[in-house]
Design a protein around this nucleic acid. Sequence first.
DNA 1: AACCCACGCAACCGCAACTTC
DNA 2: TGAAGTTGCGGTTGCGTGGGT
Length: 319
Amino acid sequence: MGKGRAPCCDKEKVKRGPWSPSEDFRLISFINKHGHHNWRALPKQAGLLRCGKSCRLRWINYLRPDVKRGNFTKDEEDKIIRLHETFGNKWSKIASHLPGRTDNEIKNMWNTHLKKRLASENGMTHKKDEPEESPMDSSSSSSCISSSSGKAQDFKTDQLSNHGNSSSPFEEPEGLPSSSITSNPTTSGQVGVPNPEHLAGSLFNFIGGHYDANNNISEEVNKPDILDTAFNIPLESDLEFWDMLDSLGPFQSDGNFGEIENNKWLLYLEDELGLESKNGGEAEPLVPEMNDLVLKAEGEMGTSHYHNRVQPYESNPTQ
DNA sequence: AACCCACGCAACCGCAACTTC
DNA sequence: TGAAGTTGCGGTTGCGTGGGT
């Protein structure tokens, strides 16, 4: 086997830990513009003090336009369980059958929820050995799962019905590693209230609309030209710009992208970029749907009850 | 109100597989 | 053909958050 395991990076010179807004933006902007042909070289080219591995992970698990965040539906959970019976801990394989979900996300989901759920359910039927039985050979625990025990507190059952969600494992084009390229129609299955997550999704989808390095374009409609500008920010030139980003606070597109602050941030960013006033002095969000969110933001500032954490970014710009 | 603890999730680590030369 | 380089994957960890006491 090819052995060479070059050190992934010079650990002394790379930044670690949570990503700052400017780093995120740099990465998005760079990939949007150039794609990612070489992860190893990417950080340098993008002016990031990260190792390529870290960039790749950040992109795949978080910034990728088609990444779907938020609660798993029961359909998805059941699917994961079924797939886990088949594939075992092959998270990437499982992820490939769940459009928009990342292996990391699924892995976390499994370890935090599904494993327990299965254990408790199996505990009912037969004493469990070890929830971790290597499932490749486990034909044992067949589908006793579909009955949702009432303990899955996060399941929004009203969403489930909307997820007719083609349970057909779908083949994805080769391109992005372990990614499902679709623009994820299922996301819209999360119906109802304007969900910040959606809006964020829209934003990222937009980005995705331009990202075509590997022909991985998620088709988007009606993208204002203005957005071209937004993601053609020069990577190298304007250090002040990146500093500004860092000073603005969180851009952590957490599970719900729900930090109202984020939206403020986006608006502010638009403002700073001069993207706002197409109609008078009033800032118009990059993504139309954000209007709702903005309104909401105005009302709810400071009452973030999303449990996700928002990292206090070190106000220590990368450059 | 303060402390503790369990939980969830983003990110890191190290190995294996794959690709290129 | 084999060595070197790169990417992908799975396991694990660190830490913020929220709930309980």
